[in-house]
Design a protein around this nucleic acid. Structure first.
Lengths: 194, 194
DNA sequence: TTTTTTATTGACTCGTCAATCAAGAAAAAC
DNA sequence: GTTTTTCTTGATTGACGAGTCAATAAAAAA
């Protein structure tokens, strides 16, 4: 019973299933068959639409990044002034849509994938550059030429806390994590003013 | 030409080869044959001494942790006073033996492994607890009951910067990384005193 | 109505890899 | 000098998984 216009639906289902399956298994060692079964289709169809396993992974990674980017943009549009914008960017990273256990697990594995796949590395760099430029842009009016160094520390802290949540079992605590980063931001800004 | 007392030599060679191979390939997707070949023996011998692939990985992880622990202990023995001890602990993590590219790559992959293997998770928790208790112990006289929260932030920053080095290509810069952490430590302590 | 396009799968191929095993060779023990 | 222990590997097994393909079926176009 083939209906037309299935392609986008199938692709979205596969991407979702990929993230879920990586989260469940905790590894990139998921088979195309597992992903396809969870998405309700045969593995042959998954190959048909994506061409291969790595491209499925990349699509999933791209999706995670897209959602994250949308969250950041939404949060930024609601904030006024550099300080509020900084807080918005930080909070968005630990917000509900990027901080679900499966997504964190997927992230962690994408980090590992980026060491193997040039495309994955490129995607990761897009995220890193965007975060860095967001932070620098709003740190500059508050910290002048010290902005880049402060941004590096905040980025490290964000990634580190994110990583640690990924290793913990159970519900991740985005509140605590972003509170830590916001506290570090406060200290950095206080230091600049003295 | 079998000589006696080979077991410890073979085991050490396999552990070294495992770290090197993971570093080279960037993945846990290394085969026992590759590891064994690099260590100069057949894959059957690797199985003979270790029993299975996962146990080879665990031995490699244990080795990395052991070296790290020895470095920290050595650095601590040279330091006097809480502040110097804190700096020693931080610097040791980014020191030459733990900060070689292969070791960083291995670490990164062990993080991923810890999501799958209970034994790997246990080993990782040993490292985390040791770091936490080291930091708290020397933060306490300087920061009182704020020590645990400060320690959490420093740990997050350490792990994050370590992770970021693992993704970068080329020679890792332990100096820059530890400078960032030491700066953060300075800010935290300054905040406590006011 | 015939043809083309899109959707879909079961069955198959081909490769890889962890793990096993039987067998050989050198030292040590007896 | 024979037996036992330690070391070692080539060959094999068995499982599993990525990717392909031919075939089916429905819709759309002709």
């Amino acid at each position: 019973m083939p209906k037309l216009g299935m392609e986008p639906i199938r692709r979205a289902a596969l991407v979702e299933a990929t993230i879920a399956e990586i989260g469940l298994q905790g590894t990139l060692d998921v088979t195309v068959s597992q992903i396809a079964r969870r998405a309700g289709m045969s593995s042959a169809l998954a190959h048909h639409y994506f061409g291969g396993k790595e491209q499925i992974f990349l699509a999933a990674m791209r999706h995670v990044l897209t959602v994250y980017g949308a969250d950041v943009r939404a949060a930024l549009s609601r904030a006024t002034g550099p300080r509020a914008r900084l807080e918005a960017v930080i909070r968005a990273g630990f917000g509900t849509s990027n901080f679900r256990p499966e997504v964190i697990a997927a992230w962690l594995n994408f980090y590992a994938l980026a060491r193997t796949s040039a495309d994955a590395a490129r995607l990761l760099r897009v995220y890193q550059r965007r975060l860095h430029s967001n932070l620098c842009h709003d740190l500059a009016p508050l910290a002048g030429d010290r902005a880049p160094a402060i941004a590096e520390r905040l980025e490290g802290l964000i990634d580190g806390l994110y990583l640690r949540q990924g290793l913990r079992r159970g519900t991740p605590d985005g509140e605590a994590a972003s509170a830590h980063v916001l506290f570090a931001l406060e200290l950095e800004l206080r230091a600049v003013q003295s």
